[in-house]
């Protein structure tokens, strides 16, 4: 598999929108074909080549280098292949992706994997708000896929998610899993407040304790066997240091909620 290397040579002055960076759009294009792809630099139409030096023709394996924290929408609608980002990346990475993998060796901005339906996003650093969330007004969020953040993530992780698996290696902000319809969120670190507010179904698990809303009721402390599947998958995907045997074997406090809604969701907090 040949690699397409995109190296940032001119950092954008204002946000750069590059939804064209995905294996499907680049596929079959020559270096100059790729450099001629249109991007939006603020309100100005520009070419990818104005910002990136391209090496190799378009294939399914794309490498990006440089500080892309002001570059938005990389991997939009991606369905196959792999994008590796050596550095930080801006908002909306992997928006609407349905397959393939995005690997970020740095931090990601807000809105990682919005409207995702499949594939995987791995962020080795921290992520911003709304990891795997629905856009505003949308009643259902991501419908599949996996998002693994090794570091911290902020508020509204998995807002309204309908299916899929989100894992945070560090801490989470407030409203983790808010309005969740189903799916699984695991936070290895501390969660902020109001976890699971409005959730109908789904699982939010944490390896730490967390404050609970008054509408979540404690059920029992038990060993949720199914959770092992998720924890094992995390161990196999770079969380081995964080997910330990005690977490696989241990007991969790189960809270069910949200009492205001269906009350079929659960928050599992590692007990011992």
């Amino acid at each position: 598999m040949s690699t397409t290397l995109l190296k940032l040579h001119t950092p954008p002055q204002v946000p750069l929108e590059t939804e064209v960076i995905s294996p499907t759009s680049l596929s079959g294009l020559s270096e100059s074909g790729i450099e001629h792809l249109q991007v939006m630099h603020g309100n100005v139409k520009a070419k990818l080549g104005d910002f990136f030096k391209v090496t190799g023709k378009g294939g399914s394996d794309i490498h990006l280098e440089g500080d892309l924290s002001n570059v938005k929408m990389i991997g939009t609608g991606m369905s196959t292949g792999k994008i590796t980002i050596d550095g930080d990346v801006g908002m909306h990475v992997g928006m609407g992706m349905s397959g393939g993998e995005i690997l970020v060796h740095g931090d990601a901005g807000d809105w990682v994997g919005p409207e995702m339906s499949g594939g995987r996003i791995v962020v080795k650093g921290n992520a911003g708000h709304m990891v795997g969330s629905a856009y505003r007004g949308q009643p259902a969020g991501i419908s599949g896929g996996e998002i693994f953040i090794y570091g911290n993530a902020k508020n509204e992780i998995g807002n309204s998610m309908r299916r899929g698996f989100i894992a945070i290696g560090g801490n989470a902000g407030d409203f983790t899993g808010v309005n969740m319809l189903a799916g699984t969120i695991i936070v290895a670190g501390e969660m902020g407040i109001r976890t699971g507010a409005g959730m109908k179904r789904g699982t939010i698990a944490s390896l730490q304790s967390a404050p609970m809303l008054p509408t979540f009721e404690y059920s029992c402390t038990y060993h949720p066997l199914f959770l092992r599947f998720y924890l094992i998958r995390l161990q196999e995907n770079g969380f081995r240091r964080i997910i330990q045997d005690k977490h696989l074997n241990g007991k969790y406090k189960r809270y069910s909620g949200d009492g205001i809604e269906l009350n079929r969701g659960e928050v599992l907090l590692f007990a011992r």
Partner: peptide
Amino acid sequence: FEVLWALRALVKGKKISENIEKDT
């Protein structure tokens, strides 16, 4: 939020945590 959430639950006839006064 906690108080409003508790009120919503009570309006719907649902249970709320016994710690409500301590928390809010």
